[in-house]
Design a protein around this nucleic acid. Sequence first.
RNA 1: UCCGGAGUAGCUCAAUGGUAGAGCGGGUGGCUGUUAACCACUAGGUUGGGGGUUCAAGUCCCUCCUCCGGAGCCA
Length: 463
Amino acid sequence: MGLIGQVNHIRDFFEDPNAYDNRTVAVSGWVRTLRDSKTFGFIELHDGTCFKNIQIVFDEKLSNFKEITKLTIGSSLKIQGKLVKTPQAKQPFEIQAGEIVILAVSSQSNPIQKKRHTFEYLRTIAHLRSRTNTFNAVFRVRSILAYAIHKFFNERGFVYVHTPIITSVDAEGAGEMFQVTTLELDKIKHPIDYAKELLGRKTFLTVSGQLPVEAFCMGFRNVYTFGPTFRAENSNTPRHATEFWMIEPEIAFADLEDDMKLAEEMMKFIFTYVLENASQEMAFFNQFIDKGVIERLEKVIHSDFGVTTYTEAIELLNKADQKFEYDTNWGANLQTEHERFLSEKIFKKPVFVIDYPVGIKAFYMFHNEDGKTVRAMDLLVPGVGEIIGGSQREDREDVLLQRMKEEGMSEDVYGWYLDVRRYGSFPHAGFGLGFERVLMYITGMKNIRDVIPFPRTPNQAAF
RNA sequence: UCCGGAGUAGCUCAAUGGUAGAGCGGGUGGCUGUUAACCACUAGGUUGGGGGUUCAAGUCCCUCCUCCGGAGCCA
């Protein structure tokens, strides 16, 4: 006989308190905090089924009363008692315990204390931090957000494609790559014979699923990938991690306008879904992490995203009454300060910047007639910066081949990618959405290390 | 990787070159409705590592390490 059916879930109490009022219930969970007096006490119990805890009242009529008052934070319990409403108190209802079974007492050296901890400290105990209010809320929202993304694409007929994590496609222009090898590095002879690799060639962890997903776009029209990606950059910022998750849709018979429309619809859909399905967590973020985050999300849901060309953006920045550390000059990348000024001060909402100079964008982007720009788009959001990067793809085989030659890319490795243009080319477009960056925007968390369960950043691969 | 800041009790932080402290957390006791509970008592230290200056270094100098922030790279 299993244990699961023997207890109620706190989540159900909050969803329909009337159904349990004055009824005998059983719960299991962990002590979040405990207060006791001479003849009675209170436990706040967390059972993992929802953000909120339930208050347990216990008194000296229990045979193990003295033991219970000595319980430490984190100790696990099974409790039977009566659920009663408490309209005059802070909590809506509580359980008056008839029996408390102590399953395990937590060691008093538990690093999670009944006090406020800094996020920096909690990162050093990432395996324990899901027991705190903030991280419990962050990671439940992470789960709900992932579901919302799948739901969005599924409802629109997109096919979910599992693109490879190990790839031989080098230098996609998206950053440094981790090399994957089965060769014994301490015994390796130079020059390295990559034919001796288990996979028969030099391989890496993927920096993007875009190229393979484009191939599947030929068969299914609208597709997306959603999986981990890896960048071996020595980036030390609150917005970068070496391992992160990315969503990459690819749509057929579509141009850049369709691409932006999809991005905007998706953002609005997932924001709405999280607000509706994580209301307790969002209320917590709004009160303790980032005051006003709910209002900001609602504003985005009800506003039209801005659009400006790169060339116009440069003009807007030059006209602005604002000193920048770096000058804006056509042909150079926009600096972070420029991007923030555009989204936070000029547009005051998410804004697409489109039609970037050829020289600062990837080889596969569609070339405009002006010969100077490509059909690329970046979506900038206040506070987080670049959250989406996408483009209409170059679907003309000759133009693409020319660009690949200029980049020195070998047809051996990329020939299959040209086939997507060779056997019935079609206009198509897509984008990459940084999953953690959306999560930061939604929760108001300021550091990417605090929205990844076990973050990998330079010097950090513990757990 | 570059620039800046910080490393002192379990945690968050004090300490003019001169006896290393507080709050929280822990432990013990008290308290008849608490919810950041409250009150009393108590234990707890290789001041990030190494080297140097000085009668004397947490404090000044050199160096290394780590973390945080800004920049770059980008999602």
